[in-house]
Design a binder for these strands. Structure first.
Length: 746
DNA sequence: CTTAGACATATTTTT
DNA sequence: TATGTCTAAG
């Protein structure tokens, strides 16, 4: 057994797996087999040391990572055993613990979880209550400060005491009220999930003791991304047995702006003087050429503690390519042409390629160029499913069914579908409820049921509010009474969501949105096997914490377009990095601060180390941003990579392909772009033709270029390259992407 | 209370 | 450029 688990591990990996007790810090360079070490270690603990799987707790940052670990453990120790190990994100695990014990903190166990959209809505309400201007005090900015405060375990009172600036004093007032409203709404935001867990451990040693007994072996992934609260949770859990195993890489810390505290990993040895430190430096992912360039970048950084020296047996490989584009169009065109070339030469498939950029705004051009070339692609991110308006609206009803005190949800749908409760009435309702110190739902109940109470609502408003209350309580009655999918069906009918959507949006868009709602309804079918009472809660929780279909489908053979942040943890044979320019990477917003500039450097490092075989670094000398042409200098980071490590390519006679007249509109509206996104993602697997389908002289039609005549056709690498003369010019297309429609002669 | 046009606004986002 | 929010008129 030992042989199996250690067989394919290098020496430091083996040490990491077999050092069973005491604190261990594993510094894992990119591509060094970190997940392997984590999973093999868990398997080793169980199989070799006889540790009870129930005593193992493994914490990750993403659901994806948690799932990956679980799946690999299924293979290593079998599903039955793997099932007994606690694996999850900080937030998911804390939620579970809080559901059990939050009553000890004076809160209800059926709390809802507010996502950033909910937080923002709540903060807007706070600002209005406090008569503050949203322009002067942007809700997001205030929430950012509050989030940082929470992560540092600073409560509203402490924050108010230490407020230095006028702005902070304002924030202090907002923070106080925001927290009151969260409690009143029986809601926790993401930060609260962590903070309340820390409180639980601090204020109730017996509960902490319970978990000391339960979890004897702790593993934490991506330790460099932990914030203060997460650090304290880990420290509390580990303080008795000290069997703490953390994995991380300070060079890949790119979330400081979200509160991640790089000191947690840098000071691990200080926190645990007896810690074993293990460096994983052998890289299994990239070529030496890629590693050399990436390392040159990092070696130029003034901030390095655990400098790693990555090496690989993969060989030198292709030189890293540097391309200086004249502008952003040239840049994406180069990338797309290069992808087409690699495909045509059989050196890559679309699914091998990833295009990475600093800001989401850059994705639009990329998308257009890919559509234009007929290459299947898919954009990671964008509007997440559960963040779509229609979905959130329906979810708001469901959340109210589970917890009518959820004031954000209530406010969200108080006039959706429209029922004559306007802004004015809502404002008055909120103000009135506040003077009575009642949650909105209770205030509504008073209006509906208590004739004696005096309130400012006469005639129409009063009727509308009463009816709304009756609707909510009717729906609330159904909680736990029927299967979730039936409940949703009932709801959709009761408020006629379909008709509402069709009245709000026209044809195609309404179709789209209604389809989304149905998709939501189908997602609920998954819960059919749970007891009826728990289906809704389980559903809502999964939605709150599992955020999105965070599975990037690597099976569909499509080019991946992705931000650098989201690319962390992924790998692709061919990686194209765009916009490596001053102002974009490092981003202009990071320039005033040394630390944030270094974070940008690490971001580039993360991007570069995603590449397995080919890496392209691109920048443009001229870029249009916000409708203005900017001259962009190449990024300072490129100067840190010696010219000997990159090969600069030039293109002669480049000329942007003019957009085909009358077709650009396709990319203009977001709705249409959404459409394109979907179709391209859902494209059927590539056919691999044995013989040519097209022949010279044949008439064909292309979705973008229109009708044309086939000039030439030949088979290449399992595909067919067709040359077609269109109205404007000749184009070479790959049959599998171009989806040419064959027209009959006549 | 809803609707059209003006106007300012503009990273990254594991949960 | 393109988005969301504010303002004035229907």
């Amino acid at each position: 057994m030992t042989g199996d688990l250690l067989a394919n591990l290098n020496e430091p990996q083996q040490r990491a797996v077999t050092t069973v007790t005491g604190p261990v810090l594993v510094l894992a360079g990119p591509g060094s087999g970190k997940t392997r070490v984590l999973t093999h270690r868990i398997a080793y603990l169980i199989a070799e040391t006889g540790i009870d799987p129930l005593q193992i707790l493994a914490v990750t940052f993403t659901n994806k990572a948690a799932r990956e670990i679980r799946e690999r453990l299924n293979l290593l120790v079998g599903e039955t055993v793997a099932h007994e190990i606690t694996i999850g994100t900080f937030h998911a695990i804390c939620t579970r613990w809080l559901r059990r014990d939050i009553v000890h903190l004076g809160r209800e166990r059926d709390f809802v979880i507010y996502d950033s959209d909910d937080q923002e809505r709540l903060m807007k309400r706070v600002l209005r209550e406090l008569n503050l201007n949203e322009k002067q005090y942007p809700p997001r900015a205030i929430l950012g400060v509050i989030s940082r405060a929470k992560n540092e375990l600073v409560d509203p009172e402490a924050f108010a005491r230490t407020a230095r600036s006028y702005f902070d004093e304002i924030v202090a007032r907002c923070y106080t009220r925001y927290q009151q409203l969260l409690i009143e709404s029986n809601a926790l935001d993401f930060d609260d999930l962590l903070v309340e867990t820390v409180r639980l451990f601090q204020e109730h040693p017996a509960i902490l003791h319970h978990y000391h007994q339960r979890y004897r072996f702790l593993l934490v992934d991506e330790y460099q991304d932990t914030n203060r609260a997460q650090y304290l949770i880990v420290r509390a859990l580990a303080e008795r047995d000290r069997n703490l195993f953390v994995v991380g890489d300070e060079a890949q810390s790119i979330y400081a702006w979200r509160g991640a505290d790089i000191r947690n990993i840098l000071q691990f040895e200080h926190d645990y003087p007896d810690a074993r430190v293990i460096l994983l430096e052998q890289n299994y992912r990239s070529t030496q050429a890629i590693l050399d360039a990436a390392q040159a970048l990092m070696h130029a950084s003034p901030q390095r503690k655990y400098a790693k020296n990555l090496w690989t047996v993969n060989g030198k490989g292709e030189a890293v390519t540097l391309y200086e584009a004249s502008d952003e169009e040239d840049e994406v065109q180069f990338v797309v042409d290069e992808i087409l070339r690699l495909i045509a030469e059989g050196k890559a498939r679309p699914g091998d390629c990833a295009i990475m950029y600093r800001t989401n705004a850059q994705s639009r051009l990329v998308e257009e160029a890919l559509i234009h070339a007929g290459v299947p692609y898919y954009v990671v991110g964008g509007v997440r499913f559960y963040e779509r308006k229609e979905i959130k609206d329906v979810l708001a009803y469901l959340r109210l069914i589970a917890n009518p005190y959820d004031s954000v949800s209530l406010q969200r749908i108080i006039n959706w579908p429209g029922r004559g409760i306007g802004e004015r009435t809502v404002a008055e309702l909120i103000a009135w409820a506040r003077t009575l110190g009642l949650p909105l739902y209770q205030a509504l109940r008073e209006i509906a049921d208590n004739d004696a109470i005096s309130h400012p609502f006469g005639g129409r408003a009063r009727t509308a509010l009463t009816e709304f209350y009756r609707l909510l309580s009717e729906l609330h009655q159904l909680h736990g009474m029927m299967a979730l999918s039936d409940l949703i069906d009932y709801l959709l009918n009761r408020i006629d969501v379909r008709a509402t959507l069709y009245s709000e949006y026209d044809g195609d868009e309404a179709d789209d949105r209604w389809r989304n709602v149905q998709e939501l309804r189908n997602a609920a079918l998954k819960y059919v096997n749970l007891p009826v009472e728990t289906q809704l809660t389980a559903f809502l929780e999964e939605i709150a914490l599992v955020a999105d279909v965070d599975a990037i489908d690597r099976n569909s053979d499509t080019v991946t377009c992705i931000t650098l942040h989201q690319a962390k943890g992924l790998e692709f044979p061919c990686v194209f990095l765009l916009g490596i320019e001053e102002g974009l990477l490092p981003h202009s917003r990071s320039l005033d601060n040394r630390d944030s500039i270094e974070e940008e450097r690490r971001l580039l490092y993360v991007g570069m180390t995603r590449a397995q075989r080919r890496l392209y670094l691109c920048h443009a000398t001229k870029r249009t941003m916000f409708g203005r042409v900017n001259i962009g200098a190449r990024s300072r980071f490129l100067n840190d990579i010696p010219p000997t490590l990159v090969q600069q390519v030039h293109r002669r006679g480049y000329r942007a392909i003019p957009a085909v007249a009358g077709t650009t509109w396709q990319f203009r509206t977001s709705g249409q772009s959404e459409q394109n996104r979907r179709t391209s993602r859902n494209q059927a697997p590539l056919p691999t033709p044995q013989k040519a389908v097209f022949f010279p002289g044949q008439r064909v039609r292309h979705a973008t270029f229109g009708e044309g005549i086939v000039v030439d056709s030949r088979l290449i690498e399992g595909d067919e390259e067709v040359t077609v003369r269109f109205a404007d010019r000749e184009r070479r297309l790959l049959a599998s992407f171009a989806r040419l429609e064959q027209l009959r002669d006549g």
